[in-house]
Design a protein around this nucleic acid. Structure first.
Lengths: 344, 344
DNA sequence: CATATTTGCTAAAACGATTTAGGTTACGGC
DNA sequence: GCCGTAACCTAAATCGTTTTAGCAAATATG
């Protein structure tokens, strides 16, 4: 016996008052609009009784506000993004905002389509990991004066709000830690992407090896390749460079693949080599050996993003652009303990 | 120079036709409504030129359809749910639906609030892991004739669609595998929850130990406890039961905690003990020893959920309720290799 | 007592679409 | 010359809100 949800009109009809009055009362504007105590009480009681809640679609259509935020990452099933999503979700709900998560697969067409979808749905704000060619779409949002914050990476020549970490310095420090531990031949496995976060990590690596006068050995895999292909590339890389004594994985996805390859094909290296990874993960603590990692401060990133977003949402006049660079934390674990030189 | 997005009205005004005509043409009803070729072309061209896309809010308000699905889990940052979320996301987008993910923390109030929010926003369908007391809210949705599918767990006395796995049998089989490998004293670590998925796993355990005439040793931790508390309880449990020679973790969260405790406090047991976990994870393959797991068929679960959902969304008359129980797969890895008896 | 002011409320437009029920005009048939 | 029909298009209601502008009655002011 599916009965329609009550609307303002229903309440108004039932109580013989106007829709306007009901709206005023339920929005707490009763006093301001001089609605009598009696009518106010009557309306509140009846609304309670029929369990009225406003139709958000109508409300949004009228007001232009949806209280929906978009959180777009590469892949929501990546633990790093999933954790951050959860943090953002909690904070947003506390402030009365709902969050739509979505994955753009670092693909421009995906990004464009998704943004179109949410534009049509009038999302109030966007927290985005931009795909390489998303600059145009981001610009379009900015021109419509819609709150946008980039994170993880940004466009150096675009004036936007962003929150990132200091990738270059974090990588540089982690590299120096490996070097101080005695590793001399450190391979760097990264994603072939021309985006800031990857370029910065790479240049941190370069800086460290150059300063220490060590050789640089780099493997770039492209984003689209599937797990098996990636594993094959790594295997080849390890075989072609048997003088390696340590390896630095530039993302936690690569680390997963890499550890598997090492486990299956080079079990000895797992113990001997120095290993460092970007982005920490519960399992790196549990792994044998435990894996040293550059840990991004998830809570802080989430908190910063939400604070910036709330500011943007509530701003009246134009705020200046804010670009925040946070520090990452180096977790020193067993995989970067001082090298035990076998032949020196 | 923020210019308003074009609406049907704008197009109509510009071309000196009625809004109705524009709407018909853009919805492909031109021929049916006998709109002339010429007018049709004019409208299509102009719409293209100004890059018209309909305001989804208005559309939804009018039609009652939002093309939004809700996917509610305990915690979206749990890798198991995150992976599934990704699968659902891909399938849903292919069919023109958007997905809102949310975490109810297995809490009734959360569930209720979230459902209220999406009810107000007129979501088209719901895929839900219900919290223990969510029966009433689920019923309310069903009465409004809104598509709902439960998964992971269900209410035995509620006639709903659901997709679950055969928890009892999967646990029973995994237990027998441990028993056949020679383990005689198998602890079972689970969450104190009276929900079907947990009860079934527990009864699978009971069935197996009873049949094999083995002792049963169970640790129940409650959902709310934090990581450190859980680890403390496990430590006590392991110490109090030093005759244990294997342990079965009933969820992958518990496994994470448990492996950490074993690693830090009982490193010897990591190698000796049989270990089994529910819900597989990339890292269980990489762990030393690699961890045997009862793997839920994520792809199949996702596919089944979406197929059922699409059927419900497109149905005309009432469909009968579908309750699907899928099989889990046992991944036999190093942690359940035959026991090497040290003192027999 | 006539005129302001306050009190208490409401009509109606607007947001941007969809859809029902016609309304013109033109043309063919008889 | 009248009627029926087809071709082409549109007015207006509707979804459920918010909000502006203002009306009528009661009260205050001089």
């Amino acid at each position: 016996m599916k009965t329609k949800r009550p609307s303002l009109k229903d309440i108004a009809a039932n109580l013989q008052v106007s829709v306007t009055t009901v709206s005023f009362v339920l929005n707490g504007k009763g006093p301001e609009m001089r609605i009598s105590e009696e009518v106010t009480r009557k309306i509140l009681e009846y609304a309670e009784e029929v369990n009225y809640t406003p139709n958000q679609l109508a409300q949004s259509l009228r007001t232009g506000k949806t209280n929906i935020l978009v959180f777009m990452v590469e892949d929501i099933s990546n633990p790093f993004f999933a954790k951050l999503a959860r943090i953002i979700e909690v904070m947003a709900y506390k402030k009365g905002y709902k969050v739509i998560f979505c994955s753009n697969e670092n693909d421009n067409r995906h990004t464009e389509e998704l943004l179109q979808v949410f534009r049509d749905r009038k999302a109030d704000g966007y927290i985005i990991i931009p795909s390489p060619g998303a600059k145009k779409q981001i610009k379009a949002l900015l021109e419509e004066d819609i709150p946008v914050i980039l994170f993880d990476r940004y466009f150096p020549d675009l004036e936007t709000n962003y929150v990132v970490i200091d990738n270059e310095n974090a990588t540089y420090k982690a590299m120096n830690h490996l070097i101080e531990s005695g590793y001399q031949n450190i391979g760097f496995i990264t994603i072939a992407a021309k985006q800031t976060q990857m370029l910065d990590r790479l240049s941190g690596y370069h800086k460290a090896v150059k300063e220490a006068n060590l050789p640089s050995r780099i493997l770039e895999v492209s984003f689209g390749e599937d797990a098996l292909q990636v594993e094959g590339l790594m295997r080849d890389f390890f075989e072609a460079n048997h003088q390696l004594d340590a390896v630095f994985f530039a993302t936690n996805y690569l680390t997963q693949r890499g550890l598997l390859v090492m486990r299956e094909h080079f079990p000895g290296k797992l113990k001997e080599w120095g290993i460092m990874t970007f982005d920490d993960n519960e399992f790196f603590r549990i792994h044998t050996p435990s894996i040293s990692a550059v840990a991004q401060p998830l809570e802080e990133i989430g908190k910063t993003l939400m604070e910036m977003m709330l500011e943007l949402l509530h701003k009246n006049e134009k705020k200046e652009v804010r670009q925040i660079v946070l520090k990452a934390e180096l977790k020193e674990r067993d995989s970067s303990r001082p090298k035990v030189s076998s032949n020196q």
